[in-house]
């Protein structure tokens, strides 16, 4: 009986096992990006920009040329690369601390300039690498190392909705928020990432996919409960959907 392959690891990822905590959906999102790069056959034309956070080692995992940016500056680094090599594909892979906190200026201006780069924005509502501190996307009431009594609006203000914010910028061509909390949504996330890279390919401008992701370790939940937590808590605060689609891509 010969067997047909239904699923195998993408060549878009290296063979290096990842350092991510058990059950962390960073790994899934890496896979989706790797698969899209492989399926579009652009691995050899792609330069990825790693940010600083849990995904700081992502240059060990994406199977293409990679460069390591300072914390928050990946969109600026990506701008430098893309402007010199307009015919290559350039993406950044950033967490919510990197993108929405220290790097908010860089991502806003990259979008405003319509940089033809793709930003993979992993939103897990917390700083993972440094041990669970509040991020700009931490939910009201969510306990973290720096909001031990739960994020309090009167003290730490309110979460930043990045997709909604960036979609007001005319330079943004494609912005979608997806989630990695179940297989069906993971498949939708992959389609969004594909659309983002297609937007880059057509030179329509800035593209970003925000993926709601888990942090079992710092949320204090097991991997499966963490997926549930996205569904029950994050999605209400961060509604999924396409927030910008300049070309009306299907």
């Amino acid at each position: 009986m010969s067997m047909k392959t239904v699923f195998k690891k993408t060549t878009g990822l290296t063979d290096n096992p990842t350092h991510y905590c058990p059950g962390c959906t960073h790994g899934i999102i890496h896979r989706l990006v790797g698969e899209v790069l492989e399926e579009m056959d652009i691995l050899e034309e792609t330069i990825g920009v790693a940010s600083v956070g849990c995904s700081v080692l992502s240059y060990e995992y994406f199977n293409c040329d990679m460069t390591q940016a300072a914390h928050g500056r990946a969109p600026a680094v990506a701008t430098g690369v893309k402007r010199v090599l307009p015919d290559r594909f350039v993406f950044t892979y950033q967490g919510d601390g990197d993108l929405a906190s220290i790097g908010i200026s860089e991502v806003i201006h990259a979008a405003a300039r319509g940089e033809k780069i793709t930003v993979i924005f992993v939103n897990n509502a917390i700083y993972g690498m440094t041990g669970g501190q509040m991020a700009p996307t931490t939910l009201i009431g969510q306990k973290t190392a720096t909001t031990p009594f739960g994020r309090d609006e009167s003290i730490q203000g309110l979460p930043i909705k990045v997709c909604e914010m960036l979609s007001t910028l005319d330079g943004a061509a494609y912005i979608e928020r997806v989630s990695a909390h179940d297989v069906q949504h993971i498949q939708k996330a992959k389609r969004a990432i594909r659309r983002a890279f297609e937007t880059q390919k057509k030179g329509l401008g800035f593209s970003m996919v925000e993926i709601l992701s888990t942090c079992p370790t710092n949320w204090g939940l097991d991997p499966y409960e963490s997926l549930e937590w996205i569904k029950d808590n994050m999605i209400p605060a961060y509604p999924l959907g396409v927030y910008k689609n300049k070309e009306g891509a299907e």
């Binding site: 392959t5 239904v6 699923f7 195998k8 690891k9 993408t10 990822l13 096992p17 990842t18 991510y20 058990p22 059950g23 962390c24 959906t25 960073h26 790994g27 899934i28 896979r31 179940d182 297989v183 993971i186 498949q187």
Partner: peptide, 10 residues
Amino acid sequence: QICPDCVISV
């Protein structure tokens, strides 16, 4: 598809 570490081939 749910595996974060690409452990499983099908």
